[in-house]
Amino acid sequence: MKETLLCLNFGHLLPYTMSDSNSTDFTNPSTFILLGIPGLEAAHVWISIPFCTMYIIAILGNFTILFIVKREPSLHVPMYYFLCMLAITDLVMSTTILPKMLSIFWFNSREINFIACLTQLYFSLSFPAMQSGILVAMAFDRYVAICDPLRHSTTLTNAVVAKIGLALVLRGTILILPYPFLARSWPYCRTNIIPHTYCEHIAVVKLACADIRVSSYYGLSVAFLVISLDVFFIAVSYTQILRAIFSLPTKDARLKTFGTCGSHLCVILSSYIPALFSFLTHRFGHNVALHLHVLMANVYLLLPPMLNPIIYGARTQQIRDKLLQPFTHKGT
């Protein structure tokens, strides 16, 4: 998902070219150099302000979701368990790239260890894959709750939810595992300079002195496998949900039932729309400046973690009530 899953794998089409004057004869470098946002180095401090703000909101919002769900027994149901899984993936996604990015922007700390770079590459790919799977699980939860409500508690038991969560973690972990191993197997030469704020997959392997088509083809296959299947299952779930909603007798009942899906639909849009823009920019925007590609790659990993807790906090009455509880008690 994202450049992370889909767009990155078209990244071999991007103009990540470096001057031949930077060429050297080293292989398997101990460190890489992250440029930040090429062409906008003078504005790094100013660019850091919105990114840092997004990260702070993401951290506070997602930890608040986790705290509220943990403290409130009435929220110990599948919907909120999946929401907690989403919050954890959001925290890891944003933390994977933001601290290093800020160290580049604020302290000009551009070096990153080779193994640390591959680790960052791995996390920036695997957790968006897990996030996409969690959105499918949340769609399934809404499908059972609306289309077969009497069996919801017996279908989605705590054990089943735990197994779904484990399966999503294993899927994201195993499918993405070849990425860093393939990247580590290539010999590197010419330069160790990465024109990016983090170790983006294709930006790294393009530095290799080898035919990287295996990495590109594998990445493309995984991207289509994960994204196409996830979008398909979400679409099937909501097709059944809409059929059940339109069969309800009154307009108020239809609106109330559909309202229970509102937060999830907004989260789906906040996750997949940036991915779509990244894909279109990378696939068709060959004349788009490199710094715009880099900015899109960062926005994709930072925007959903910031928006998701806001969406659920604003649209979910149980969470909203718990957030406002301290203030309402003071006023009484």
Rank of each mutant, 00 (worst) to 15 (best):
V288L: 04
V299A: 13
M296V: 14
Y312P: 05
P309E: 09
L303M: 15
S278Q: 03
H286V: 13
L280E: 14
Y300V: 10
G285K: 01
V288W: 01
N298Y: 08
L303R: 08
N298L: 08
V288R: 05
S278M: 06
H286C: 12
Y312T: 05
F277N: 00
Y300W: 11
R283V: 11
M306Q: 13
I311Y: 04
P304Y: 10
T281L: 09
L307A: 11
L295Y: 06
L280Q: 07
N287W: 15
L307M: 13
L302G: 00
H293R: 02
H291A: 06
L302A: 11
A289Q: 11
V288M: 03
V288P: 01
L307N: 12
N298H: 02
F279P: 00
A297F: 13
F279C: 03
I311C: 06
L303I: 09
Y300E: 12
T281F: 03
N298M: 14
H282E: 15
I310E: 08
H291P: 02
L290T: 13
V294T: 06
M306R: 05
L302M: 08
G285V: 01
N308M: 07
L303P: 07
H293I: 02
R283K: 06
P309G: 08
M296D: 15
P304N: 10
H286Y: 14
L307D: 04
F277C: 06
P305I: 01
L290E: 15
Y312M: 09
M296Y: 15
Y312S: 10
I311R: 03
P309V: 11
V294G: 00
P305M: 02
P309C: 13
I310Q: 10
F279K: 02
G285H: 00
L301E: 08
P304S: 12
I310S: 06
P305N: 01
S278P: 01
L276N: 02
H291K: 02
L303V: 07
F277L: 01
L292Q: 15
N308R: 04
H291G: 05
M306I: 10
L290A: 12
F277V: 09
I311V: 04
L276R: 01
L290R: 14
S278G: 03
F284Q: 07
Y300C: 07
M296K: 13
V288H: 04
Y312W: 14
L276V: 02
N287A: 14
P304M: 12
M296E: 15
S278E: 00
N308Y: 05
L302S: 10
H282L: 12
L276T: 02
P309Q: 06
N308K: 02
L303Y: 11
F277H: 06
A289L: 09
L301H: 05
L276H: 04
A289N: 14
A297R: 00
V288Y: 07
L302T: 03
R283C: 12
H291T: 01
M306N: 12
S278Y: 02
Y300Q: 13
L301M: 06
M306K: 07
V299P: 08
L295R: 01
I311S: 01
P305L: 01
L292D: 14
L276W: 04
Y300I: 06
P305Q: 03
I310M: 09
L280D: 11
Y300D: 11
A297M: 11
L280I: 09
V288I: 05
P305W: 04
